[in-house]
């Protein structure tokens, strides 16, 4: 987990290459197998949630701050895109940009006062923010459509080429995921990333050597909000429908679960967690019918208990297990 902080560039390149290749091949393979065909559809949503999770990963894993308002930025993007394209017919990409701008301003307004202080204030401020935003979406029926939602949001295209099929949209979403992943990896390797790591290990020490702690935290919070906003816009144009309950506090919590289960100290963890939770909730668990909630809870518990570092730590764990099985030199401490 912690080791990923210091991953060398040369170790990253094959991983990224493999990731890109996997993204490219997935729909081609899925279409060959009958019961996997609609997995592409689920993967589009997994990609959208991956985006939101990536931003949150930066914020939580690297800046050590919890946000309970991430679904609201996701929702701001979705509603700005949805409302403006539906009511005024303005170019969707312009709305994506507008959503990013608004989210950045709002994130700054919330982040600036609460991130100057040490501690958990961001979590509480974003909780209040999230509840307020959901009520605003619900109450302004004339603009947002209220609780019944806003339907018939137009799709999105690139230079007049309509992305009107699941597979086309899949490639759009996952290309953006790849781009954002590269961006986030760069942030981590940059000055900001180093500063953040120093904050995470000891905030007072970082402050003492002259790192402007608050500035970097606000920077990351705004960045994560902007990424979530993009994800929201993509969601609106894909589903062609939005309603307030898709962006409420429980979605924020779902995003938290994603990154913690995936492994929040690694950006890959965000993606792994988002894909896992999306598939669990949209595809695999419904076979359990009424027991679904219980099974979901049990899976979350099992992962957090046995893999506190998240799923990305599984290969390392497996290696350790394997080594133990093999040589038996390392004796595992029982209990503790």
């Amino acid at each position: 987990m912690a080791g990923n902080h210091t991953l060398k560039r040369d170790k990253m390149t094959p991983r990224l290459g493999g990731f890109a290749l996997g993204i490219f091949l997935f729909p081609l393979l899925a279409q060959q197998i009958d019961f996997l065909e609609h997995y592409v559809d689920v993967m589009v949503f997994a990609g959208i949630y991956s985006l939101a999770a990536l931003g949150l990963c930066l914020l939580m894993g690297y800046a050590g701050q919890i946000s309970l308002g991430h679904a609201s930025f996701f929702g701001l993007g979705a509603y700005i895109s949805g409302v403006i394209t539906t009511k005024y017919g303005i170019n969707p990409w312009l709305c994506v940009f507008l959503g990013m701008l608004v989210s950045a301003v709002v994130a700054f307004a919330i982040g600036a006062p609460s991130l100057r202080l040490r501690g958990h204030y961001l979590a509480m401020a974003t909780l209040a923010f999230c509840i307020i935003v959901t009520i605003i979406f619900n109450e302004n029926v004339a603009i947002t459509g209220g609780p019944d939602g806003l339907a018939f949001i137009p799709g999105i295209g690139i230079f007049g080429y309509a992305l009107d099929s699941v597979t086309k949209y899949y490639y759009l979403v996952w290309s953006i995921v790849l781009l954002v992943l590269l961006l986030c990896l760069n942030v981590i390797r940059s000055r900001v990333g180093r500063a953040l790591r120093s904050i995470h290990s000891s905030e007072s020490a970082a402050g003492a050597v002259g790192v402007n702690v608050a500035k970097y935290k606000i920077y990351v919070f705004v960045l994560s909000a902007v990424i979530a906003s993009v994800a929201g816009s993509l969601y609106a144009h894909y589903l062609n429908f939005i309603n307030p309950s898709s962006f409420d506090l429980f979605v924020s919590i779902k995003l938290l679960i994603m990154i913690v289960l995936g492994g929040m100290y690694s950006l890959w963890g965000g993606i792994v967690g988002a894909v896992l939770i999306t598939f669990l909730s949209y595809e695999w668990l419904h076979y359990f019918e009424d027991a679904e909630v219980m099974v979901y809870g049990a899976i979350v518990l099992v992962i957090i208990i046995f893999l506190p570092g998240g799923l990305v730590s599984l290969p390392d764990k497996a290696k350790v297990l394997w080594a133990r099985e093999d040589g038996g030199r390392r004796v595992h401490k029982v209990g503790q």
């Binding site: 679960i257 289960l261 809870g297 957090i304």
Partner: peptide, 10 residues
């Protein structure tokens, strides 16, 4: 926190 969330679902 996540463990309590999982437990709450359960």
């Amino acid at each position: 926190i996540i463990a309590t969330i999982g437990a709450s679902f359960l």
